[in-house]
Simulated assay, not measured.
Amino acid sequence: MNEQQNVQKIQEGYDLFRKGDIQNLMKLYTEDIEFVIPGPAQVVPYAGIYRGQEQVTTFFAKLHEAIDFERFETVECIAQGNAVVALGYAKGRARTTGQISEEEWAHVFRMRDGKVERFQVYTDTAAVVQAFQRSNQMAM
């Protein structure tokens, strides 16, 4: 696939995510997909490394249980070769604390044969950690 087709595939994935259609979203990933989500797993319930379709499906379940998104938007997608970088913004409420997490993020996708083989998140982990901590705890 060319770079524009890769960007279209990523944008399709974001649309499916926003609709909550994880079943069809998973069709955009290779069988050996790898997700890298930063943060301390003892605080951020969905942080970690997920490998394969089953683990990535678990990630999406954990994310849904942890955050109620008010906004999740892609601002720009940049492609070069088999890589796509998406820049965006998210605002959501941590379900366990009721606190808001607001962040700008970068997502890096590696494509193989028209599907995503690797996904890595870059974000303000301190802001995310703070949303999952009770207000009487200090942010890490």
Score class of each variant (00 low, 15 high):
N2W: 00
E3Q: 11
Q4C: 01
Q5E: 10
Q5S: 12
Q8L: 12
Q8F: 11
K9Y: 09
K9I: 04
I10H: 03
I10P: 04
Q11D: 08
E12G: 04
Y14S: 02
D15A: 15
D15R: 15
K19G: 06
G20P: 02
I22P: 01
I22N: 05
Q23M: 11
N24H: 06
L25Y: 08
K27T: 10
L28A: 10
Y29Q: 14
T30C: 15
T30D: 09
T30H: 13
T30A: 15
D32C: 08
D32S: 14
D32K: 15
D32V: 09
I37D: 02
P38I: 06
G39Y: 03
P40Q: 14
A41S: 14
A41H: 09
Q42T: 10
V43I: 14
V43N: 13
V43M: 11
V43W: 04
V44H: 03
V44N: 02
P45D: 09
P45C: 12
P45Y: 10
Y46L: 08
G48E: 08
I49Y: 07
I49V: 14
I49G: 12
I49N: 15
I49C: 12
Y50H: 04
R51P: 04
R51H: 10
G52F: 01
G52D: 11
G52P: 00
Q53G: 03
E54V: 07
Q55A: 12
Q55E: 15
V56E: 04
T57M: 13
T58Y: 10
F59P: 02
F60V: 04
A61F: 01
L63C: 11
H64K: 14
H64P: 02
H64R: 14
A66R: 11
D68Q: 13
D68C: 06
R71V: 05
E73W: 05
E73Y: 05
E73H: 10
T74P: 01
T74N: 15
T74R: 14
C77G: 01
C77Q: 06
I78P: 01
A79T: 02
Q80V: 10
G81V: 01
A83F: 10
V84S: 07
V85W: 02
G88H: 04
G88F: 00
G88D: 00
A90K: 13
K91N: 08
G92D: 00
R93K: 15
R93T: 05
R93C: 04
R93Y: 00
A94C: 05
A94I: 06
Q99K: 03
Q99M: 08
S101C: 13
S101T: 05
E102Q: 13
E102F: 02
E103N: 14
A106G: 08
A106C: 08
V108H: 07
V108F: 11
F109P: 00
F109Q: 02
M111F: 00
M111H: 03
D113A: 14
D113M: 07
G114V: 03
K115A: 07
R118C: 07
F119C: 04
F119W: 13
F119D: 09
V121S: 09
V121R: 06
V121H: 02
V121F: 04
Y122D: 01
T123Q: 15
D124R: 00
D124A: 07
A126I: 06
A126S: 09
A127K: 03
V128G: 06
Q130G: 11
Q130E: 11
F132H: 10
F132S: 05
Q133I: 03
R134D: 09
R134W: 05
S135N: 09
N136P: 00
M138E: 09
A139W: 02
M140D: 07
M140K: 13
